[in-house]
């Protein structure tokens, strides 16, 4: 990872659910997280893939992604998220999440990535 260059965060959804998500970052020494992207499954350019650029961010920064899914009860959802720089995927920064919604058809994925 080149900390002098911006990061591209790409997220895609592969299941029939209504989705909204939000991304935050926090640089070392920051007291609070800063929102850098918010979206829904409706705002995409190709298929269900969404890309957002952030940074450059220094080493030790944190990225948080929160994704909410809403669909039918006990249905399988799937999402993938990857970090890239200048179009090249960063090894070790690809994430895949699969699970099922609960009895209300709701599910949440919230994760923190530390950039090192």
């Amino acid at each position: 990872m080149d900390f002098s260059k911006p990061l591209t965060v790409t997220i895609s959804f592969n299941s029939p659910h209504a989705v909204s998500y939000r991304f935050w970052y926090k640089k070392p020494g920051d007291a609070k997280y800063t929102i850098f992207a918010t979206g829904t499954d409706n705002e995409y350019s190709t298929s269900s893939m969404h890309s957002h650029v952030v940074g450059p961010l220094p080493s030790g920064s944190e990225l948080v992604y929160l994704v909410w899914f809403s669909g039918n009860e006990y249905t399988a959802y799937a999402m993938e998220l990857a970090l890239s720089q200048e179009g090249v995927l960063l090894p070790g920064y690809g994430f895949s999440h699969r699970d099922t919604t609960d009895s209300d058809g709701f599910a949440q994925e919230k994760h923190t990535i530390t950039l090192v």
Binding site: A18, V19, R22, L66, W68
Partner: peptide
């Protein structure tokens, strides 16, 4: 329906994680 659900999700997201 799904647009209205997406809107609910979108407008309810927290400001801090």
């Amino acid at each position: 329906y799904t647009d209205s659900i997406s809107n609910i999700l979108f407008t309810t997201l927290p400001t801090q994680p």
